[in-house]
């Protein structure tokens, strides 16, 4: 028998009995950040491919969602902060080695880029709103400039969108202390998942049939890529350290197996994959909204599951001798 236990009661808030510093707020942020990335990339891609006709929503209206979704994400991120008044400290330094610092600054750049993206199709996308801008000479000039430079703006938005999407994954994979996250696959996986959720979003809300089909096709490809990346991720962990193997156990029959395989892989990836396949063959039309909803759900579940398992995966694990709830008496 091997016993390894705390002999002094340790019940550090959010740390014990296992790390639970991040809950839905951060998962939601990572999800919305990825979605934002996808939105920017698709709005830009359509502009570059000049498919305004085929995909009018993505071409002219989609971009507006980027700052909205991102702001929602930043709100949940803010909610997660423990020392909220000091949030401005993200912007009083730049830490080259910290993906989170990169992320904070990327977010700052994302906003202007996505505004430019919106402005470049404001007149066509939001004719009710554009007159308010057109009323002012400077507004007019800006809109004119943006329309004229729509291509250049799109070409800027794509790398920034991709950076945003990848960063949400790198953010986690940079934590060597959390064996389950410590895989280079997370960046691409999160990017692809972000793109996939954005495609699903368009497929869901676009009115035009050709657009729905186009984005369902995109999504199909992306889901397929995501399945491959998930497989890669698991292979990656399986060939990793002892701690990574232990972490992997939690989805291989461990406590998270059900959420991971059924909810994420099954409901979030495979079912929509099949449904979308059927859809583009013209079948299963009546349930067309199901697949994109599941993809969006799957995108969120992926982050949540990763957040949860990653925090529980660790290098040091001690039993605790004491019932930590007793310590609550100190506060009663």
């Amino acid at each position: 028998m091997k016993e390894e236990l705390f002999v002094t009661a340790r019940s550090n808030a959010l740390i014990d009995p296992s790390l639970h510093i991040w809950t839905w707020e951060v998962a939601m942020y990572l999800f919305l950040g990825g979605l934002t990335a996808g939105i920017m990339v698709f709005a830009a891609t359509i502009a570059l491919l000049k498919k305004d006709e085929e995909a009018p929503f993505a071409a002219t209206k989609l971009a507006l969602l980027a700052p909205v979704v991102l702001s929602l994400g930043m709100t949940t991120l803010f909610l997660d902060l423990e020392h909220k008044l000091y949030v401005f400290r993200f912007y009083t330094s730049f830490q080259v080695l910290s993906p989170m610092s990169w992320g904070a600054w990327i977010l700052i750049v994302i906003y202007p880029v996505s505004i430019l993206q919106i402005l470049s199709t404001l007149r066509s996308g939001y004719p009710q709103a554009s007159p308010y801008v057109d009323r002012f000479a400077i507004g007019r000039q800006v809109l004119d400039w943006c329309e004229a430079n729509r291509r250049q703006i799109a070409m800027t938005a794509i790398p920034f969108g991709i950076a945003l999407g990848i960063y949400t994954g790198i953010l986690l994979s940079a934590f060597s202390a959390r064996p389950f996250w410590n895989s280079g696959v997370l960046g691409p996986l999160f990017l692809v998942s972000g793109l996939s959720t954005a495609a699903a979003l368009v497929a869901l809300v676009a009115r035009k049939h050709s657009e729905k089909v186009l984005f369902t096709r995109f999504d199909l490809g992306l889901i397929a890529a995501e399945v491959a990346l998930v497989a890669l991720f698991i292979i990656n962990l399986a060939s990793g350290t002892e701690q990574q193997l232990t972490a992997l156990d939690s989805i291989m029959g461990g406590p998270y197996a059900l959420v991971f395989w059924v909810l994420f892989v099954g409901v979030g990836l495979l079912i929509p994959l099949v449904l979308e396949l059927l859809e583009i063959r013209g079948l299963a039309r009546r349930v067309a909204i199901v697949a994109p909803v599941l993809v969006l759900l799957g995108g969120y579940v992926l982050r949540q599951v990763l957040i949860d398992i990653g925090q529980e995966s660790n290098w040091t694990k001690y039993d605790t001798q004491y019932n930590a709830e007793l310590l609550q008496r100190l506060r009663d």
Binding site: L14, I15, L19, I21, W22, D80, L81, E82, H83, K84, Y86, V87, R89, F90, S98, M100, F175, S176, A177, R178, G310, Q311, N314, W315, T316
Partner: peptide
């Protein structure tokens, strides 16, 4: 410190 807790996750 913003209380973002990245350092907590970063400590093995």
């Amino acid at each position: 410190c913003t209380g973002c807790k990245a350092c907590i996750a970063a400590c093995p």
